[in-house]
């Protein structure tokens, strides 16, 4: 019925395309290999880990033994819960403070507006490591080190959120704000009930950006947290790999799998927001 090769042609697979797929598949294999190795090792018995030969699949199946061991050695669920608490706390304050400020910068004229925006642009360049020392000292003097509050404090203000939302709000039509004023809404109500809902794609993208950044952050937790029960996932992972686990790569990989899983799953479910959110810094 059909000419040879027509199936491939129908799939858009010319020789050139096939060559590109071959190359890209090789790249994808290299990129994903660490993930594969992590999961593989998490399901392997430890004697296989130390064998000098390479195997694609576990030779003996140990089920979730490594995961059980990981849970027994460190409060992994606690780490993840901490991550969730910290990320949601930070995000909530970031949105509640940045949205009104961005709206004021975008839609009102007031004295000092340009100065405020210049400061925002300056702060946009400054990484958390710069104010870290004085912040640490301030927390130390007030006795609030080693708390959820201390973990979140430097990130409550997101100048990036202010910058981003200002751009978004600026393009919101003045006519609709005028219509809302004529309809009798107050300024607060206009912001939260009319302007913010229409900015929800940007807010979702920012949320993903913020969650990714703070779920994965190690520097600040390393400084302010000393009790393991407050550790977010990266710090927990560090404790885990520090404790005498040299012999138990399986459990280590099981822990890594578990701590990476939430973001990976989130990513697979909301790829569009993710790519947008994580790269927003670049495409602004």
């Amino acid at each position: 019925m059909s000419r040879p090769g027509s199936f491939f042609m129908r799939m858009g697979l010319t020789p050139g395309q096939i060559a590109m797929h071959a190359f890209l598949l090789a790249c994808a294999f290299a990129m994903l290999f660490p993930f594969y190795w992590m999961v593989l090792t998490a399901f392997r018995p430890s004697q296989e880990v130390f064998s000098a030969t390479f195997h694609w699949l576990p030779q003996t199946f140990v089920g979730f033994d490594n995961f059980r061991e990981a849970f027994a050695k460190a409060p992994l669920l606690r780490f993840m819960a901490n991550g969730a608490i910290i990320c949601s706390g930070i995000l909530a304050v970031q949105l509640l403070t940045a949205i009104p400020c961005a709206y004021a910068l975008a839609k009102y004229e007031f004295r000092g507006r340009n100065l405020l925006f210049a400061l925002v642009l300056f702060a946009l360049c400054v990484p958390v490591q710069v104010p870290a020392l004085p912040l640490y000292m301030g927390l130390a003097f007030t006795g609030t080190l080693d708390s959820y509050f201390s973990l979140m404090l430097p990130f409550f203000l997101s100048v990036f959120a202010i910058f981003l939302f200002r751009q978004v709000f600026r393009s919101f039509p003045d006519d609709i704000i005028h219509a809302a004023r004529l309809d009798g809404m107050g300024e607060m109500e206009i912001l939260w009930r009319v302007v913010v809902p229409s900015a929800s794609p940007a807010i979702a993208a920012f949320a993903v950006f913020s969650i990714t950044a703070h779920w994965n952050d190690l520097y600040w937790p390393l400084i302010v947290v000393t009790s393991p029960e407050l550790a977010p996932p990266p710090l927990g992972m560090m404790y885990f790999s520090d404790t005498d686990l040299g012999s138990s790569f399986g459990a280590l990989m099981a822990a890594a799998t578990l701590l990476t899983a939430p973001l990976t799953i989130l990513f697979l479910f909301a790829q569009r927001h993710f790519v947008q959110g994580v790269t927003m810094t670049g495409v602004k």
Binding site: P173, D175, I176, H178, A179, A180, L182, V194, S198, S200
Partner: peptide, 13 residues
């Protein structure tokens, strides 16, 4: 007073 705008200014959401 009420107003009808050129862009209609309907609440999009």
């Amino acid at each position: 007073v009420s107003m009808v705008f050129q862009s209609y200014a309907l609440y999009p959401h």
